[in-house]
Amino acid sequence: PAAYWRLYQLFLLGLFLLGVGLAILQSAANPYVTIVGPIESAAKRMSIVGTGNKLAGVIANLIFAGVVIRESDKVLMREIESGLYTGATLETALDTLIKGVMTPYLILAIALFIFGIVVRYSALPELDPSVVNKRSAEDESSQKSIFQYPALILGVIAMFFHIGTQMIALATSIQYAGTMGESLAGPAKNIPSYTMLLTFLGYFIGIILIPRYLKQRNALLICALLNLSLSVLIISTSGTVNFLGITSDISIWYLVMMGLPNALLYAGIWPLAINGLGKHTNLGSAFLVMALCGSAFMPMIYHSLVELNSSLSPFAAMKYAYWILIPSFAYIVWYAAYGYRIRSWKKSEV
């Protein structure tokens, strides 16, 4: 309907409904993956899910770019942008362009509906979090509210920082390269892809090592420490390097390298945060999903820091704004080392 009537409000409603669906899906799927097996290997299962999630994102974008935006559509878009059409002819051209999304999205909707039916009647075991993810009966009776679980609340903050810093690394890297004189249409445009490639590698490392060779809590601590170290290097080091056809300051490659340890931060925080929530498991998972708004707020804070340093060169302003990464990863290090063990807000109970 949004494409048929070409109404912004309907598109916004459609995107909102997609967001609601994704939030509900993650609130149900992530805790299921976490507690469907031993909690000690939850990060491994989350890493497997992560590879599918990221791979699907890449493939879906390529497919839809090829199916929805055809070559004739690209020509039409260029003609519209050049001002070739006006009045009724412009409306007709816009109608032609936007209606191209109708059939692909209708097919996608039908496919997702069928997949939902398959999941509904599949042989997946029904899990009761109040049974498979609870602590002692004493804890269950004394902790009536979700806010009485410090490990969760502190984990939500850790997730907020993780998702926010991950988005900063992805969203600012091309612009940061541009301040070094790199053309945004040249090899620098591939920098986010290099970051995502390292994230894929990080997932596979987690699948191989956790929990047989590395405890998931230790993996989280090591990865957080790595990113903290890389953050310090971004701020403190300088030097021109030529790598993969990109001539830039070495600090941008430290930013790219964050993709590797970032893979296991999400997988590491999740099981530590919801472990032992019992009947509150699904609600706690919803809180963690809400923490994904860090990808919206943290880049805004970063760009505010860039503006505060507007008297400096664009390169220096962006470089110093990466200071925001240091306290964020320092907090995640603290959570992995100590925060996840806090059982009560009272100082004596850890």
Rank of each mutant, 00 (worst) to 15 (best):
G164F: 00
S130Y: 09
G19N: 12
L225R: 10
Q9I: 12
A29L: 15
S238E: 11
S72C: 10
N133R: 06
P314Q: 02
L264R: 02
G339D: 00
I110R: 09
G100P: 15
N309G: 06
Y320Q: 13
P187I: 05
F200Q: 02
T89D: 15
A291H: 05
M257Y: 08
L308E: 13
A3R: 04
P1N: 12
S173Q: 13
T237R: 08
L197M: 13
I114Y: 03
Y335K: 07
T179R: 05
T240I: 13
G178P: 07
S311E: 09
Y194S: 06
F243H: 03
V68M: 14
P104M: 09
I157G: 10
K99S: 15
P129L: 00
I210Y: 03
L10I: 15
V67I: 12
S173E: 09
L198Y: 07
M258R: 10
P271C: 01
M300L: 14
K54L: 15
I98A: 10
Y105H: 06
L277H: 08
V58D: 03
S72D: 15
Q216L: 00
V156W: 02
I191L: 14
G155M: 01
I274D: 10
G87L: 07
I235P: 02
S231A: 13
G57A: 09
L264P: 02
V289R: 04
S142Q: 15
I191C: 01
I114F: 10
S313V: 03
V306Q: 09
S82V: 05
G52P: 09
I301C: 10
I168S: 05
G37N: 00
L90E: 07
T89K: 11
D128T: 06
A224Q: 07
L272G: 11
L220A: 01
A267T: 02
I252R: 06
A291M: 01
A151H: 13
Y322Q: 08
V241C: 09
A286W: 01
V132K: 05
A65P: 10
V132E: 05
M77T: 01
I324R: 01
G339Q: 05
A56W: 04
G116D: 00
L277R: 00
T199S: 02
K189L: 04
I39F: 07
L255F: 06
Y266P: 03
V75S: 14
C293F: 14
V68K: 05
L152Y: 09
I59D: 12
G284L: 07
L62N: 08
L228P: 03
L305T: 00
P187D: 14
G268T: 01
F16W: 11
M167G: 04
V156K: 05
M298R: 00
A23Q: 08
S251A: 14
N53A: 03
L12Q: 11
P150F: 02
S122Y: 00
K99Q: 15
N262H: 14
G202N: 00
M298L: 14
E81R: 14
I157V: 15
I80C: 01
A23D: 03
S236R: 13
A171Q: 14
V36I: 11
L283W: 10
R341V: 00
I110N: 04
G276K: 03
D139Q: 13
I234H: 10
I117F: 11
A330N: 02
G87Q: 04
I222A: 06
L22E: 03
